[in-house]
Design a binder for these strands. Structure first.
Length: 949
DNA sequence: CACATGTGCAA
DNA sequence: TATTGCACATGTG
């Protein structure tokens, strides 16, 4: 490494915004209710840079008052950027304070953007013989890169990349970094409001630069272009040159580079600590102290000068002492039983002493298992060759039962050997008395099931725990570690690379790194468990966790492994039919339109319909300026225009074909010949499940053509039949019971058709005299109530005018007065407590319930009404699933539960068991939860899913 | 290749 | 200006 002096210039707002949005799903809120995400994000980045690079010169640059020059150039410049979020505005004064306490220079120049300040300083420092690193994710800075000026870019998933001249050349396909300005000028930048040349994106800009080298030269040679592109470029030269000016970072800001002003000096540790304490950044204080402790500096400096990106080496003393403690666990076995041991300080995170070790094959493993069996509670994490448990092979399993310590058992590639190894571990996994802790245990359970291991004993899943603590947040382990432990674990991307052809398999990773990664995950999961256990108790959701979500894990794992049989030849025949009809429609549409275009492109379709054919006077537009061509819009025009009818039919058929008929056969698993969906237990904020790869919860049923797809879901063989069991009107029954609305409760108790009954009451006609239209309108209101409908929304959904809709809603509330009271009660509760709950105490927090923004508040109020209803229905069917699964299991039935579709369960029933199970299923579902309103379940069977309805 | 948008399927 | 989801095609970055 050269001894050139190094200057780091930090683009403050870019990192603040980045930090703020990194926490957007799990914002950091302190006890005073302040959103400290932006400060936390920024400080993490700053400390990270300091720790990694130990800059000798550093400054943080801010904007002030925007750039008068640029605004003058182009009035729209940065005009329609979203307003700066509140959480960022409040963060800035704190950040100033912290930087001052850290004795880090702050660069601001009124009327100039940080870009320009950084650019000017970088160039000046270069003349003084410095190497400058611009710390920013913003690619605009690439234009400044030179032999001595670099971009130091944080990358998602942790780490940094340095862009020098070669990187910029490669990224932008240019020879000179200055051409980045031409690139940006041509392509434009939506976030900076640089318009760019119309119709020119990344690809075209690169092509032009390769051919012409600059925008000016492109304009001088437009005669070489052709078609639309030629016209557009020639017509927009002025706009292009303006864009180029906007994209140019100015280098003439009146700032001086006096090197001693930029020297790093000792921070005022007590002062910084005090501010962090005020903000409640406990972990950050540790991080800060470690960053600036004398020892940390020495290690880092040593590392930096040796130019090693690797983690610093351990002192031999640490390994020895940690090692001795561990080895004694093996009853004094030889240290040679271990292959690797590591103890290091990771740079991206708060550091703590830890001891991770992989266990050598043979005797060491047996000794390890012996020790494992002495524990009452163990966290484990499987590492596999892929994400599909049906095909993934075990690469290793990490274990941890004490914070900071853990072990890794690598698995051999040979199948027989791997099976032999897992047999050694079987006593642990199948021990009823050892609690198993993990993150997303459903995955591990499925993987182990393929090795014929069933995971027994009490479970604690940190992902599920956090889902109950706050379902609106995200629950992946990296985010949880950052939020609750202020620790950034090794990211999987860092380990195996981004997905694509260069991504490595876990098996290709050196054992030391596998160990570090896997055991760290187990260790962190263990720490998270200790954290969440308390929180579950505080929110009174322990019971929901232990009795619903946790038992459901095994149920879902079994359903997913089971899969469902799909009639592929039938779907292929359906595809042929669809193709013929689609072709006919396409020909007809092109004929009327007078040209060929992409009907599936809303953009092109809008232009044909509303510019060429001028079907309406004032077409509606989307927020991005496109014509609206949604189903509702087109349906209104269908009566008068045959082409619109054809387009609607085309859309329907094309959708059917691409999403279901063509896609489903591709999802048949080779290993089983069946389709295996993946149920997500922690996605829906209300407590529902969701389904993906493929989504089997949105298979068509409403249109004749669509419901044919259901015929493709068939029993496993002729000895079986499909059975579908549906809750009838479960959500309305729940709202009737929760609101204690007697009129509605009576209707359900009498087994009335609830929509007809409602119509009869609100339109004041005998139930036999209710018209189809009246029932339909009543049905719409009934559903609307569950979602928190407005008169406007109702009139949109029906043929009613806004006035009629309002009247209908008023009459509805007169008919069911307690419903109205219940709705108000929910909203009030949410205002007072900040959350609402389901019948089983599942919470949803509504942070916007007291928002001053009526739109935002309204949405929260609707959630306050809807979440307990939708969520309680989810609670109930989950109970039913667990009970049914346990009975099928205990009774050794051949029949299997296959699918859940929110209020429906689908089973593959062994014919001899049909009668018995029909009763069992119906009984379990109807009695899953007792309410004032009876639950009613309709059961039907058939040769396929459609017939079973 | 990743992401946003528009559209549309289900409960 | 109705709740919760997932996925497809297109178009862009």
């Amino acid at each position: 490494m050269s001894d050139q002096k190094r200057l780091f210039l930090v683009d403050a707002y870019a990192l603040i915004f980045r930090g703020y949005y990194a926490f957007i799903k799990n914002p950091r809120i302190n006890s005073k209710g302040e959103d400290t995400s932006a400060i936390m994000g920024f400080m993490n980045s700053l400390l990270d840079v300091i720790k990694r690079e130990r800059p000798d010169h550093l400054a943080v640059c801010f904007d002030k008052g925007g750039s008068a020059d640029r605004v003058e150039l182009f009035e729209a410049y940065k005009a329609n950027r979203d307003e700066t979020p509140e959480g960022i505005k409040t963060a800035v004064p704190y950040i100033y304070e912290i930087l001052k306490a850290m004795h880090i220079p702050i660069m601001v120049k009124e009327g100039f953007e940080a870009d320009d300040v950084i650019g000017t300083l970088a160039k000046k420092a270069e003349k003084e013989g410095y190497q400058t690193f611009m710390v920013t994710p913003d690619k605009d800075f690439a234009q400044l890169v030179s032999e001595n000026i670099f971009m130091y870019r944080p990358v998602f998933g942790g780490g940094y990349e340095t862009w020098g001249i070669p990187e910029v050349q490669k990224k932008f396909e240019v020879t000179d970094p200055l051409q980045v300005i031409d690139y940006l000028g041509m392509m434009g930048d939506a976030s900076d409001n640089i318009p760019g040349l119309p119709g020119v994106g990344d690809k075209t800009a690169k092509k032009f630069l390769a051919a012409y080298g600059s925008m000016e030269n492109l304009f001088a040679n437009t005669h070489e272009l052709k078609g639309k592109m030629k016209e557009k470029i020639e017509a927009n030269q002025e706009l292009g040159l303006l864009s180029k000016k906007l994209a140019t970072i100015m280098l003439d800001v009146p700032v001086e580079f006096n090197e001693k002003d930029f020297e790093m000096s000792e921070p005022d540790i007590p002062k910084v600590t005090a501010i962090f304490q005020e903000l409640e950044f406990r972990r950050l204080i540790d991080n800060f102290n470690k960053t600036f402790s004398a020892e940390a500096r020495e290690t880092a400096t040593a590392m930096q000068t040796s130019n090693k990106a690797e983690a610093p080496k351990t002192t031999p003393k640490d390994i020895k002492s940690a090692g001795e403690g561990q080895f004694s666990l093996f009853g004094g076995s030889e240290p040679s039983a271990t292959e690797t041991a590591s103890e290091h300080t990771r740079q991206t995170a708060a550091t703590y002493s830890h001891f991770y070790q992989s266990v050598a094959p043979g005797m060491a493993t047996k000794l390890f298992v012996k020790n494992l069996m002495n524990q009452t509670s163990v966290c484990f994490d499987t590492e596999t060759t892929g994400l599909n448990p049906l095909t993934a092979e075990l690469v290793g399993i990490a274990f941890s039962w004490e914070v900071g310590k853990g072990f890794y058992i690598p698995f051999p590639e040979d199948k027989a050997e791997a099976q032999a190894l897992i047999e050694v571990l079987r006593p642990f996994f199948e021990d009823e008395n050892i609690q198993k802790i993990g993150q997303n245990l459903k995955y591990d359970i499925k993987v182990l099931a393929k090795y014929n291991i069933s995971v027994k004993g009490k479970l604690f899943d940190t992902m599920l725990a956090h889902y109950l603590i706050n379902p609106d947040m995200r629950h992946n382990m990296d985010i949880l570690a950052e939020t609750y432990l202020n620790y950034t674990p090794i990211s999987i991307t860092e380990l195996i690379g981004k997905k694509g052809k260069n991504q490595l398999s876990m098996r290709e990773i050196p054992l030391e790194k596998q160990t570090e990664y896997a055991v760290e995950d187990a260790d962190i999961t263990l720490q998270l468990k200790e954290h969440f256990e308390k929180e579950l108790g505080e929110a009174n959701t322990q019971k929901l966790f232990d009795e619903i979500e946790i038992p459901l894990v095994r149920v879902l794992a079994a359903m997913e492994l089971e899969g469902i049989n799909l009639d592929v030849p039938f779907l292929n025949a359906l595809a042929d039919d669809l193709n013929k009809d689609i072709e006919t429609l396409v020909t007809k549409i092109y004929d009327v339109a007078g040209e060929e275009f992409n009907i599936a492109s809303p953009k092109q379709l809008g232009i044909i319909l509303f510019e060429k054919l001028k079907l309406v006077d004032k077409p509606k537009k989307t927020k991005t300026g496109q014509y609206k061509t949604g189903e509702d819009i087109l349906s209104a025009l269908a009566k008068e225009h045959e082409i619109v009818r054809d387009i609607l039919e085309y859309r329907g058929l094309a959708k059917l074909k691409s999403t279901y008929v063509d896609a489903l056969p591709l999802q048949v698993e080779e290993a089983t010949g069946r389709v295996h969906t993946d149920y997500m237990q922690t996605v829906a904020a209300t407590g529902r499940l969701s389904s993906n790869n493929p989504n089997l919860q949105n298979i068509p049923i409403r249109t004749e053509r669509g419901r044919q797809v259901r015929k493709a879901f068939i029993p496993r063989n002729e000895d079986y039949t499909l059975l579908a069991a549906d809750y009838s009107q479960i959500e309305l029954r729940i709202i009737a019971a929760l609101s204690e609305e007697e009129t509605m409760i009576e209707a359900f108790k009498n087994g009335e058709d609830i929509h007809a009954s409602t119509a009869s009451k609100v339109f004041n006609v005998p139930i036999e005299a209710v018209t189809r239209e009246q029932r339909s309108n009543a049905k719409t209101v009934n559903f609307g109530i569950i979602y928190g409908v407005s008169a406007f929304g109702l009139s949109n959904q029906t043929d009613l005018s806004r006035g009629e809709a309002k009247e209908l809603i008023d009459t509805y509330y007169e008919t069911y007065p307690k419903l109205k009271a219940y709705i108000s009660k929910q909203v009030d509760f949410a205002r007072d407590n900040g959350y609402v709950s389901t019948i089983l105490g599942r919470r949803r927090y509504l942070k916007d319930i007291n928002s001053r923004n009526a739109l935002v508040r309204g949405a929260a109020e609707r959630n306050a009404v809807n979440a307990p209803i939708q969520g309680s229905a989810a609670d109930i069917i989950k109970i039913a699933m667990i009970n049914i699964f346990n009975k099928l299991d205990a009774g050794n039935y051949k029949s299997k539960m296959l699918l859940q579709v929110h209020d429906e369960l689908v089973f593959d029933i062994y014919k001899p068991e049909l009668e018995e199970l029909t009763t069992l299923i119906k009984t379990e579902m109807e009695n899953a939860f007792k309410m004032e309103v009876p639950l009613d379940v309709e059961v039907d069977t058939g040769l396929n899913w459609l017939e079973a309805h």
